[in-house]
Structures are given as structure tokens and as C-alpha cells.
Nucleic acid binder design. Structure first.
Length: 199
DNA sequence: AGGATGATCGTCT
DNA sequence: GACGATCATCCTC
């Protein structure tokens, strides 16, 4: 499969539009041991002013990448055990981000298995912490642009994605009723509920 | 300098 | 379905 890097202008800047558009794109890590890649099947939007978002209480050292202009990486460490990968959204100085929650593994499966404690294909990238472990993503990549300026980048969709569903976001308490989680319907690789909440 | 918190995961029942 | 692990980060004193 050929992987074609996205260019500036290919992806939306507004947070929720970006979260939807990312479904079907491919996240790629070119490691020294080989290429690891997965197709994005689940995302969550954290738009400006969202009380559930890390950027809500303003800029800190940790979340500074969320205030960069769109399409930079924001990687943070959570619960002492996991990393989560986001793309920044909106314009420079405005807080906004998209959490990537699940990937469909498409390249480097043996490397993913070595990075995870399971060999089950469906479990390798099912969850925001799991996909970071599988791809070897950590804070080294916090703040990088995702237009193939370094080893971590985003590629265009290899084919048209299926229909997209929307639901409540996972693991938050504030603004919990908003339908800002997006997923490819029918995918076996999503991490949360598969309920068909109305978009 | 110390305490509280968390966009999770793996394991157990 | 429930719970504990585990630590970087932020806030308050």
C-alpha cells in the first residue's frame, strides 16, 4: 500500500471538522526497525471553550501544543501508564484538539505486537493509550508538525472511509452529553461503545 | 515541598 | 462491571 503524506491545506482547521475528516487517514511512524502504521477509525473533538478539554483552563507547559496552529502533535502522559496522541486544531494561540482513540493496524504488525502485551489484531490499537504503545509514540513527538517533517506523520486515506457515527465522549464528566466522538461504523477496531447515537 | 488529579489499561470477579 | 496501578503535571501552601 502506498502512503501519501498529507500537505498543508488538505485537512480542516476547525476542531470538529478535523475530527471527522481524520477518520480514514493513516497515522505513520517510521522507526529504525521499520514502518508502523494504522488507519484512524475513532476520534474525539475538544473544541475551543470545551470544559472537558485540557486547554480549557489556559496554556501550561504540558498543553502548550494545543495552542499551536492546526495539525501539530499534542502528546501527554496519563495515569502514570499511558500516552495519548492528539492533533492540534484551530489557529495559532487558540486552544483546540482532536484525540485519536483507535486505529486499524495496517503495517508493522509484528512491531506492534512487540510493543504491546497482546498479539490479538483487534486489540493492538484499540484505545488511545494502546495505539501510542503500539506505534511507539511518546512525548518526543509533542509539538511536531504532522506533514512528514519527522518520523511521525499523517497520510491520506488509502480508500474512502465508511459511514461515520457520532456519540458521547469516553472517560470525561464535564460536557458529557455532547456528541463529539466520531467513529467509522462497522469497524472492528474502535475502542468504545458502538451505539448509533444520532449525529 | 507536598497533595490531588487524570481524554487509561489490565486484571479480577 | 469494578478496581488498583502509577507518575507527570499542576496548584496551593
Amino acid at each position: 500500500m502506498q502512503l501519501d503524506p498529507v500537505a498543508a491545506g488538505d485537512l480542516p482547521v476547525e476542531t470538529t471538522a478535523l475530527a471527522r475528516a481524520l477518520i480514514g487517514h493513516v497515522l505513520v511512524h517510521e522507526t529504525s526497525k521499520g514502518l508502523i502504521a494504522g488507519r484512524i477509525v475513532e476520534t474525539e473533538a475538544y473544541p475551543p471553550g470545551d470544559p472537558a478539554a485540557h486547554h480549557y483552563r489556559g496554556r501550561t507547559q504540558r498543553n502548550a501544543s494545543l495552542f499551536l496552529d492546526a495539525h501539530h502533535a499534542y502528546v501527554y502522559h496519563i495515569y502514570g501508564t499511558s500516552y495519548c496522541f492528539n492533533l492540534s486544531a484551530e489557529s495559532d494561540g487558540v486552544g483546540g484538539g482532536v484525540l485519536v482513540r483507535a486505529l486499524e493496524p495496517i503495517a508493522g504488525l509484528a512491531l506492534m505486537q512487540g510493543n504491546r502485551r497482546t498479539e490479538q489484531l483487534a486489540d493492538l490499537c484499540r484505545g488511545p493509550g494502546r495505539l501510542c504503545a503500539a506505534l511507539g509514540i511518546d512525548r518526543r513527538f509533542d509539538g511536531v508538525t504532522l506533514f512528514r517533517t519527522c518520523a511521525l506523520w499523517v497520510a491520506r486515506p488509502p480508500y474512502s472511509p465508511g459511514r461515520i457515527g457520532a456519540s458521547r465522549r469516553v472517560g470525561i464528566s464535564r460536557a458529557a452529553s455532547r456528541l463529539l466522538r466520531y467513529y467509522e461504523r462497522g469497524s472492528a477496531f474502535i475502542s468504545g461503545p458502538r451505539s448509533l447515537s444520532p449525529a
